[in-house]
Design a protein around this nucleic acid. Structure first.
Lengths: 222, 222
DNA sequence: TCCTTTTTGTTGTAAAAACAACAGAAATGT
DNA sequence: ACATTTCTGTTGTTTTTACAACAAAAAGGA
């Protein structure tokens, strides 16, 4: 735990807390660390979620499997992101998603249920904590709406341009590196990988974009 | 305001508060009521959002326009739902969506910014309020993931079956009424209306579903 | 380095969707 | 009740996509 103390301290979920407050919170939450390897399933659809998961390092995909067996990537999470935070506060805490580790990860686990019951009003830091959670959830919400925008475009071309434009805006530059490999990007945008590759090449030929592997340059305003 | 007192009191955002607490909060938030007619734009993309909007009655669509001019319906909101709650807590409070009134609506408006600055730690009810907001946002988050699941299916048929199956589950019955008309449903699922109508008829002919207008019966487990 | 595996790109074909144009049904207003 | 408007369903055609099979490039290991 000590090894990760600095990372934990810098996590947005503990934003604005002094060391002594953080210590108190970690104790209150019965905090623990768990390591996962790439390929591991962290949360499986149907699991009951009562704990808060904070990614300290590594990479995690939030996925769904369609009834017909296709993989849907909802989002890709990294350091400081929370996994399935929205489920902790829900009435139905049964997970509706799978969380798959895609790069070796270290996860901080907080026993929210226990703490929340124990110090609903007692723990004076709980207020700041829940404010932080609210902010994090807000951000995730905005990201989900952005994803909906991306995949709601009518053609592969429009999906790619919208996605790349949003990434460019987030990076505040027309040169940026994307987080997905081609298959993952296709699963994120719900399109066929080979058709997507074809369209990417076409956009490159037309001079609208340029790319090499995951580094992209967007040459147009979309 | 008095006219809507009971409705306000029953709103999840004030859950668990006694009358005197509610009164104090409403004052603290400089609460006001605003009426909208069907067709009105409540929030326009780019607006700075600093207030909390609670729907007391009526219906509101959350929409985006794609760069190429197509309408995308993100979700349909009703009584007790909040509009753009996630933006209030974000760093960038510029709205990324349009909120369009689809049935004459009454909206409760709370000045969150003012209150939040004023009684960050002072107002003792603020804690309960933010906990409620967290819950609401959690629920919305789960709904957005559900929408992503719906529109991520690969064919019109699968989108319809997934959507209807989710609706059936929410209503805990295989007979249910949907909230969208055909054009809205098409815009929600990002498909062509006429192609959707065709597929619905086909599903009916095959006996998988039955429907009349917005009342549906799902005859299969998806 | 060379071999193997993984990732990405290309092409042709079959399937699915969008689109347009229209017909029928239902809702609305007078 | 009738006319008008809105909503829903149908059909044929064009466009787009998925899929399969393979080629090329990159990454990883011995």
């Amino acid at each position: 735990m000590q090894k990760y103390y600095q990372k934990i301290k810098n996590s947005p979920i503990f934003y604005g807390m002094a060391d002594f407050e953080l210590d108190r919170m970690l104790e209150c939450f019965k905090a623990s660390i768990k390591n996962y390897e790439a390929g591991d399933t962290i949360i499986r659809r149907g699991d009951i979620i009562t704990k808060i998961y904070v990614i300290l390092e590594g990479e995690v995909n939030i996925e769904k499997d369609s009834y017909w067996g296709r993989r849907i990537i909802i989002q890709k999470l990294h350091e400081n992101n929370n996994i399935a935070l929205s489920l902790v506060a829900s009435k139905n805490t049964e997970s509706n998603i799978n969380a798959i580790c895609t790069k070796d990860a270290t996860i901080l686990i907080l026993n929210y249920e226990k703490c929340s019951a124990m110090c609903q009003n007692a723990c004076m830091h709980h207020g700041a904590f829940i404010r932080n959670m609210f902010k994090i959830l807000s951000k995730e919400n905005v990201e989900l709406v952005e994803k909906i925008e991306n995949i709601s475009q009518k053609s592969i071309r429009d999906k790619l341009l919208t996605y790349l434009s949003n990434e460019s805006e987030k990076n505040k530059s027309n040169m940026f590196e994307i987080q997905f490999n081609r298959q993952e990007l296709a699963d994120y945008l719900n399109i066929d990988r080979s058709a997507m590759s074809f369209e990417l090449s076409k956009l490159k030929r037309e001079g609208l974009i340029n790319y090499k592997k995951n580094k992209f340059i967007l040459r147009v305003e979309v």
